[in-house]
């Protein structure tokens, strides 16, 4: 007993073939599915199968592995499909999709203008979450647009929340204007007053 050294012979790296990994995406064992999703990193032919499965995957850890691999394909096709998931009834799925989109600085900006005008205010709330972490020079401008123009107080509050780490004196008028637009919303008022402090 006590401290011991592992004496087993070092294992050799095992690389599964791409067809095997694609088959394993449907394996009943969630660990196998998860490792297959990660193993498909950088494999272009895996994008379609992963996009087809990610929304239906019941295990969050497997779903997040799929999203990690998908997000590395920072292309329009992936961003478009992940954006659809922002409207999901599954809160975990739409949040995970937002986090994945935020790590795609090349493809996500192209879909932001459309998301900002989406009819569903919940999608616009998720868009604010994407913008909170998206590394793009226009991210703060888009958040300011949401605060200035969006008709729904929850969206404005989400945008204020996303802007908080970067808020400065230059945003004071924008934020005060938002309070004036929604005088009956105490939560928004509280959020903005906290931001201005």
């Amino acid at each position: 007993m006590g401290l011991i050294r592992r004496n087993a012979e070092p294992e050799q790296l095992q690389y599964a073939s791409i067809p095997d990994l694609l088959r394993q995406l449907d394996d009943p064992d969630r660990d196998v599915r998860r490792e297959a999703a990660l193993g498909l990193d950088g494999v272009a032919v895996a994008v379609g199968p992963l996009l087809d499965r990610v929304a239906a995957e019941p295990v969050p850890a497997v779903r997040d592995a799929m999203l990690t691999t998908l997000a590395a394909h920072d292309i329009g096709r992936v961003a478009e499909r992940l954006a659809v998931l922002l409207a999901s009834d599954d809160a975990g799925l739409r949040t995970a999709a937002a986090e994945a989109l935020a790590t795609m600085p090349l493809a996500t900006p192209a879909i932001i203008p459309r998301l900002l005008t989406n009819y569903d205010h919940d999608v616009r709330v998720m868009t604010a979450m994407v913008l909170a972490n998206l590394r793009h020079p226009a991210a703060l401008t888009w958040l300011a647009e949401m605060i200035r123009d969006d008709p729904h107080p929850n969206v404005v509050a989400a945008a204020v929340d996303a802007l908080l780490p970067s808020v400065g004196p230059e945003h004071a008028e924008l934020l005060q204007q938002a309070v004036r637009r929604f005088p009956d919303d105490p939560f928004l008022r509280f959020t903005i007053e906290a931001a201005l402090r």
Binding site: M1, G2, L3, I4, R5, R6
Partner: peptide, 8 residues
């Protein structure tokens, strides 16, 4: 530490 093996 005397009862349990530990690998670091």
């Amino acid at each position: 530490i005397e009862d349990v093996d530990v690998e670091i």
